[in-house]
Write a protein that binds this DNA or RNA. Structure first.
Lengths: 190, 190
DNA sequence: TTTAATTTTTGACAAAGATCAAAAACAAAA
DNA sequence: TTTTGTTTTTGATCTTTGTCAAAAATTAAA
């Protein structure tokens, strides 16, 4: 399967585009390679690109009182960006950093906006992507609200074991909203 | 200002529709009145309606181990529904309950889908609403992740004092992810 | 009003998790 | 291999918040 097919077959999980719109969409994407620990997006800068992560892993994090708070991870087939900055056009408040060497596809906000005007169906696709991302975030939020540290870990182990396999524990702890020591202890007595 | 103008002027905060699309959209809305403590949506049932809250207040909550976990509030000019159920068509896992007697406007998912097909611009409007709702949720999520109970309360007091004025403390505590007693103590020593 | 019901606050104690510091384990490079 | 750097674990202690129970305050109803 070539790269175009890869991206397009994933998009079909959301909505099936006409051949013409598919082609137009694909023409707007540029390949990007980025390396472990590199920052894809830095707080303070305006993020005008949406990325599709073909291969690799990365994280979004905030700097709060000198500490890094990881709040999400991205893996294969995720759309990633600093949504706040991308949507509002304001400077990003978060950083996005590579956890592994990765291959991404990038589309600019301008190009995407132009596509919306040309192809209703592309806007529909994006509307559906937002719907799904919204409920995914909602789920995580509610989960975090009333679960204990142990339950959060067990949940993660069950739902997204790949995260634990590919991501340093320190990041995972902060992602779960607990200290690294607590996470380590939970792992110890399971 | 009559009711149609109220709804439409609010929608303009997101995207300005043509007169024709405005009219078509408005024709799909039905007025709903609901009373304090009533359940607008009950877990287990499928929610096929999206509501615009014209006047009043309500909350979304989950039942977990016999406890009610409030995870959001809705006030004037909010679009509300069980998004998970509305989007996926699966049974709702949450309940939506009136906190005050309220006036809402309801549109069915079928009607909205039909409008999407007829008017690209309506789908654009909804895409933009989702964008905004997504980043609003993201903000709340990150906030909850690294703030202490006291900071969360002070934040709420500053950002959304209306919540504290209109909502019983027990609901607010659960919304902040802390116990009612802790919230009461925080308020005491400020 | 007086009574009843509900909501909020207070107190005492328990538990979960955070923090600081150091040791151990692991990985990468020389 | 040894050395060096990084990540993870362990131990001791401190804080924050939760829980249970009862009192006080507030609101609604009779």
């Amino acid at each position: 399967m070539n790269v175009m097919e890869h991206l397009l077959s994933h998009i079909k999980n959301y909505y099936t585009l006409s051949d013409e719109a598919q082609q137009a969409l694909f023409d707007c994407f540029t390949k990007v390679t980025a390396f472990k620990n590199e920052l894809l997006i830095t707080e303070g800068s305006i993020c005008r690109e949406l990325y599709f992560l073909e291969q690799g892993a990365l994280r979004g994090f905030y700097n709060v009182d000198g500490k890094e708070i990881t709040h999400w991870f991205g893996f294969e087939n995720d759309f990633v960006t600093s949504f706040h900055s991308f949507i509002t056009g304001k400077p990003a408040v978060e950083n996005i950093q590579l956890i592994e060497n990765s291959t991404l596809w990038s589309i600019s906000k301008n190009a995407l906006t132009a596509l919306f005007n040309q192809y209703h169906e592309v806007e529909r696709l994006v509307r559906i992507v937002y719907e799904r991302y919204y409920i995914r975030l909602e789920e995580r939020y509610v989960n975090a609200q009333f679960k204990t540290a142990k339950e959060l870990y067990e949940n993660l182990l069950k739902q997204s074991p790949h995260i634990l396999e590919r991501v340093p524990l320190g990041y995972v702890a902060s992602y779960l909203g607990i200290s690294q020591e607590t996470l380590s202890r939970i792992r110890g007595r399971l």
